[in-house]
Simulated assay, not measured.
Amino acid sequence: MTQSNLFEQSEENILPQDGIVNYYGCVFNNQEANQFLLQLLNRIDWKNDEVRIFGKQIITKRKVAWYGSKPFLYRYSNTSKTALPFTDELLAIKAVIEKVSNETYNSCLLNLYHHGDEGMGWHSDAEPELKQDGAIASISFGAERKFNFKHKLTQEKKQIILQHGSLLVMKGTTQRFWQHQLPPTKLIKDLRINLTFRTILE
């Protein structure tokens, strides 16, 4: 896909109101996406996530990692993480998505879903450490998965399929008015790695 086609595709806002979500499709070809998937799988310091829900400490099946340009502290779901230094692979991916999205990012939260049974419930990325209304760039490698949005007031829903090597960018007031979700499914047996590049306030 050419850069001009990417720009044209990104002009369409997936959301009908109260936010901006642009889907650029595959910004990495299949060979590049396969290579990054393998590198991330083997070179990232993956750990099972620990979250506290209703006072109970829960260890998730999915694995996570937190990287950045500085040792940023990030708190979510009653847990906190200190960013590891960006790897060469993450810097290479970041350079591409910054050029395509015309945004800059200084940190990245990674999620490893081993199969379709593992997902993510409804939530917004609105932690106080994050730049308010800043862009969040979501890169997908591996299994194609459905990704849902739900308006906090109207409950209106939107759905998109995230492809291998694709880029989705959420910005503006999206996190204020919308939640998003990666629904679990028993139909998918392959793994997926998702990277969400963000901007932490310094």
Rank of each mutant, 00 (worst) to 15 (best):
I20F: 14
F197S: 04
T104E: 15
E103V: 00
A33K: 08
Q175S: 13
I53E: 12
I58W: 08
N148M: 11
N13Y: 09
N29L: 01
L195I: 02
E103C: 01
R192A: 09
T196W: 03
K131P: 01
L191I: 06
K81R: 15
Q155I: 12
F7D: 14
Q3C: 14
V21Y: 12
R145F: 13
V169K: 02
R52T: 12
N30F: 04
R145E: 08
I97Q: 14
H151A: 13
W178Q: 11
V96L: 09
S101T: 06
T79R: 01
E11F: 05
S107R: 01
L84V: 13
K152P: 02
Q159A: 14
F177G: 06
P128D: 05
K94Y: 06
G119Q: 03
P71Q: 13
S69H: 03
N194Q: 02
Q3W: 10
S107C: 07
T82E: 01
K61L: 12
D88G: 08
G165Y: 03
T82G: 02
L153D: 04
I136P: 03
F141N: 15
W178H: 15
V51T: 08
S80V: 04
L40D: 08
A135G: 04
L37W: 06
Q35R: 11
R198C: 15
T173P: 03
K81W: 01
Q35N: 09
N106I: 06
K94R: 07
I53R: 10
T199A: 08
T196K: 07
A33P: 03
A65K: 12
A95I: 00
K63P: 00
T199M: 04
A143P: 10
K146C: 00
I200L: 15
G68R: 07
I139C: 14
L90C: 00
N5A: 12
T154M: 12
N5Q: 06
S101M: 13
A33R: 11
K70T: 00
I53A: 05
L130A: 05
K150Y: 01
N22E: 13
P71L: 10
A95L: 09
Q17G: 06
L91S: 14
N148Y: 07
A137R: 03
I20M: 15
K47P: 07
Y74K: 00
G142T: 08
Q31L: 07
P16T: 10
L91M: 09
Q155H: 09
I53P: 02
T199V: 05
L41C: 14
E98H: 11
K81E: 04
E202A: 02
E12L: 14
V100Q: 15
F54S: 12
L167G: 05
F177E: 12
G121H: 05
N111M: 00
W66M: 05
L38Q: 08
M120C: 10
S138H: 12
L38K: 15
F86W: 07
K61F: 10
R198K: 06
T199G: 01
I53G: 03
G134C: 06
R176K: 03
T87C: 00
I160L: 10
L73M: 06
Y74R: 01
Q181R: 09
Q163M: 13
I188T: 09
Q17E: 08
N102C: 09
T87P: 00
T173S: 14
A65Q: 07
I93A: 01
L37F: 12
P128T: 08
D133W: 13
Q39D: 14
K63E: 00
G19L: 13
S166A: 07
M120T: 10
S107Q: 03
S77Y: 00
H180M: 12
Y105S: 05
A135S: 09
N22D: 07
A126N: 11
M1C: 10
